[in-house]
Design a binder for these strands. Structure first.
Lengths: 350, 350
DNA sequence: GGTTAGCACTCGGTAGAATTGAGTGCCAAC
DNA sequence: GTTGGCACTCAATTCTACCGAGTGCTAACC
């Protein structure tokens, strides 16, 4: 998949304080009502002691500078992506509400099971907290060394290579041999495989036996299968929660369809989240991520680390008029808890 | 989860041939156009040599008997669930098109990887074939005997129990011990575990050592963890493909939301599919499955067997005015191929 | 008896026209 | 620089008229 380039958010030259206040009022109101916001509404809402006429003239400037847009003459203003960007960078600050704080704590206090399960459930949690669609990405174990390899015989021809990695992940791969194999041979092959691969990293060159007996062939086949899958294995896991929220966030059925169709392509979602993180951002608004079908979406992300190094991310996807503060606060809180959960020594790492 | 009761489809007393033809014409036309169908359209489409007036009077009967409904006076007729049911039971017959037949064959010829991957991809395939949302359910391995158990040490306190079942599935469970364990102890515990559990079924009573040394404790903890998870493990896997198709199938955003929200509850989806199969049906139309949020949906299912016994199902979910013949044909074709794929001896079973 | 042509009737959908009103841009006065 | 005033714009709403697809009924017809 081609990496898209994140359009670096337009440099938001600081606005003077009054313009900023007006912009903020417009954004707040629009997020709230989904309607274009008029000058009089701003004059009333914001605590500026100025008339609507003044607000109006400021708005003209803000529009010229690209922070606001007008759906049509004689409608109110609507924030542009740039407008939201300024809002996010300068104006909003959010903190997770009491109740939600509690909900997150409860969740992590009670959650149990393997990483995959925890991530999947976390995804549901995030989506419930915010009523946006959530994306939880767990990075693969490409770099993890192998703790154990075992060959298990299903029947005379079918064997299973079961591999355990240092990060606690486990994979299995079917191997089909072209000849019947005895249990003794499988056991011996298993032993050799173990000796051969333990401590190595997937993809590393290993010395496979060149003999042509059953055991050696078996070992070669197993190693080949394992290595063939290596590229796939760095494939991250993605958990998407609350896709039904998409239908709440957008009103056009067509938009809903597009967004859902995009979310179905997991690789794409991963790379989107990754790109945003790579740019050191925590929010990508509208066309900032340069990805057409999601032009009407904003994506909030927060990295998750395990033992200090990045190993995943949590994200939220909503309309550009999403509640950024809430979403960002929730994402940050959850990612922090996740990090802690996996770092914590009272829990299994995997 | 409470099992819903499937409303046994109303006994469809046979209709006389002309009524049947008319009903068929209405259903076909409505599926095609999504519009109410008028008597003249029927008179024209069907090859009955009767006037619209005659059709009209027949339609009155069909409506009285519950096969058709009128959205409002002076609109055409629309099939009721009962109407669709008659159609499905008596009138439609479908066969998979050339191109799709080929697509299915190609898919199964090229697909590789473990069961989970195959099922997930199958789900995508089905959805692409039909442009409906697909559901693929794989039953759990509750009954499978254990082929191998292994304890792997992640660090001094964290161990991983890796279990391989006869059906080729692999599970892992974290075990946290309250004391530091040496590698030697883990190896010994692993050996004992293996000896203890091999050949048994999860949940079976086993003789655990009662000693209090590290190894014995480790074994006890591992067995306990494994057994604690037993009920969860029969949990089936669900793969849902093409949820964006929901947005194509229904036009009200609210309906889309409801259906999506329902699909998010995997347990519910599984039990829905299971219920339909239990009743020996292959289609549940509208309210037949007695499940309110999906009242405007029809669900087509086909069972998948491995080595002769039921082990999953594939399904399609669309609007009640779905293309039953296509959907049923596709579901059947795919389930047959899946069955063959897993039975086939040129492929790994797991 | 079943079938059909004819006809009055119903009622959702559409197309215009008229109206409303939120909101703007501009300007002159402060 | 700010503001009140005012003309103007234009989407959204309401109303009306009307159309026409489709019905149900009936009387004639085979």
């Amino acid at each position: 998949m081609a990496r898209r380039t994140i359009r670096q958010p337009s440099p938001t030259a600081d606005l003077d304080s009054r313009k900023a206040t007006i912009l903020e009022a417009v954004v707040r109101e629009h997020i709230d009502t989904a309607q274009p916001v008029g000058s009089s509404a701003v004059a009333a809402t914001s605590h500026l002691a100025v008339s609507s006429a003044t607000v109006r003239s400021e708005m003209v400037t803000l529009e010229r500078e690209g922070y606001l847009a007008q759906p049509h003459t004689s409608a109110g203003r609507v924030p542009t992506d740039k407008g939201y960007r300024y809002f996010v960078d300068h104006l909003q600050a959010g903190i997770v509400g009491e109740a939600q704080q509690q909900q997150i704590k409860d969740f992590f206090a009670n959650v149990r099971g393997e990483v995959e399960d925890v991530l999947a459930q976390t995804s549901t949690l995030l989506s419930q907290l915010t009523s946006y669609t959530s994306v939880v990405v767990g990075t693969g174990h490409a770099q993890s060394s192998i703790l154990s390899v075992q060959l298990v015989s299903l029947d005379a021809r079918h064997q299973l290579v079961v591999t355990v990695f240092a990060d606690g992940s486990v994979t299995k791969h079917s191997v089909l041999s072209s000849f019947d194999v005895s249990h003794v041979e499988v056991a011996e092959a298993s032993r050799q495989l173990h000796a051969l691969l333990i401590g190595t990293v997937l993809g590393a060159r290993v010395q496979v036996p060149s003999r042509t007996d059953h055991v050696a062939t078996l070992v070669r086949e197993a190693v080949a299968t394992l290595h063939a899958e290596a590229p796939t294995l760095e494939g991250e896991q993605v958990f998407i929660g609350g896709s039904s929220k998409v239908a709440e966030s957008f009103d056009g059925v067509e938009t809903v369809r597009q967004v859902l169709a995009t979310l179905e392509q997991e690789l794409l979602v991963v790379s989107l989240v990754q790109d945003i993180l790579d740019q050191g951002l925590s929010v990508a608004i509208g066309s900032e991520h340069g990805f057409q079908p999601l032009a009407s979406c904003a994506v909030v992300v927060a990295p998750v680390t395990i033992d200090g190094h990045p190993s995943g991310a949590v994200g939220l996807l909503g309309p550009t008029r999403m509640k950024y503060s809430e979403a960002m606060a929730a994402a940050r809180a959850v990612s922090a808890q996740l990090t802690q959960h996996f770092d914590g020594d009272d829990r299994a790492k995997s």
